[in-house]
Design a protein around this nucleic acid. Structure first.
Lengths: 157, 157
DNA sequence: ATATCTGCAAAGACTTTGCATGAGA
DNA sequence: TCTCATGCAAAGTCTTTGCAGATAT
């Protein structure tokens, strides 16, 4: 949308302001990095990238900002089992960018996919309804992930 | 099965021996605990429980044994986002005890469910075939999990 | 007999907390 | 101005590693 091109990636400003949070330089730069380098960034990845733009940043601020953004639903936090959390934007100005992950058990590579989400959604709807009833559980979110060997690791190994 | 009642939970002995691993007291006690207290145990949970039977155990041994059992496929390792890994038996003498999880975002409670696995499996088969082809990814395992509010947290909060 | 396993202590890795300074609205 | 945010340093947690003594086969 044109508005976002003019004003940059600022769709989240209102989101923060609405909750009484301030728009600061560190937060802007962190969001910029999340926009530019999509997918599965660790706190340190982000820290390193942000320092190119804003060298005085502290790793603490990165963690605190990410925590805030996760709490606001702007960022998703994932754990792929390598001991550090990964973060990625949950949505953009265009709306949600829903996808799931393929995780290589050998090299740890993570591939996004967004095929089959429709049929997955059908299943989820059915399952959610049943589980809500049986366990009194109100489902708000789900995680689907496949583990296996990526193409490189199948041939290389 | 009668055989397992007579010999105890020893179906995994052959599994370990077959790979050149030894059957030791710490390993037996840890497996016993995993059998008796099913579901979502942290390393420390297991450590505390094992000490009742075998006080001289070290936490290191618990971690090393769990790592071994995970590598053997005898135990699954999960991360529910609270900073510590959770472990549970992947199967018993009766065979696999496949299930998925409902995770309460408020209190962190984890509920097992094994309904809908058939329809989930149908979806997974379809998705797996497509993803294998498109990404050259050989899928060996999957993770399905729902997040939301458990019954207690809906009413209490 | 001997290669594996264990337990202690120490180190490692990631993340969080305390506090004084600095910055946004 | 006045509250919220930042950055540094230190602490906290969970997990892994090194190594000598103990154990299973």
């Amino acid at each position: 949308m044109a508005q976002h091109d003019f004003f940059g990636h600022m769709w989240w400003h209102g989101r923060l302001r609405g909750h009484g949070y301030r728009i600061t330089v560190p937060r802007q730069v962190i969001l910029d990095v999340l926009h530019s380098r999509e997918g599965h960034l660790s706190a340190e990845d982000i820290y390193i990238e942000v320092r190119k733009e804003y060298p005085q940043i502290g790793l603490t601020t990165v963690y605190r900002t990410l925590e805030l953004l996760v709490r606001m639903g702007i960022v998703f936090k994932f754990d792929f089992g390598d001991g550090r959390s990964r973060y990625e934007l949950s949505e953009g100005p265009e709306g949600f960018r829903h996808h799931h992950h393929l995780v290589c058990s050998v090299c740890g590579r993570v591939i996004d996919y967004s095929e089959y989400l429709d049929s997955e959604q059908q299943l989820l709807d059915k399952t959610e309804a049943g589980l809500s009833e049986k366990y009194g559980f109100k489902i708000t979110n789900h995680l689907i992930r496949f583990y296996g060997l990526c193409d490189r690791c199948q041939s290389g190994e």
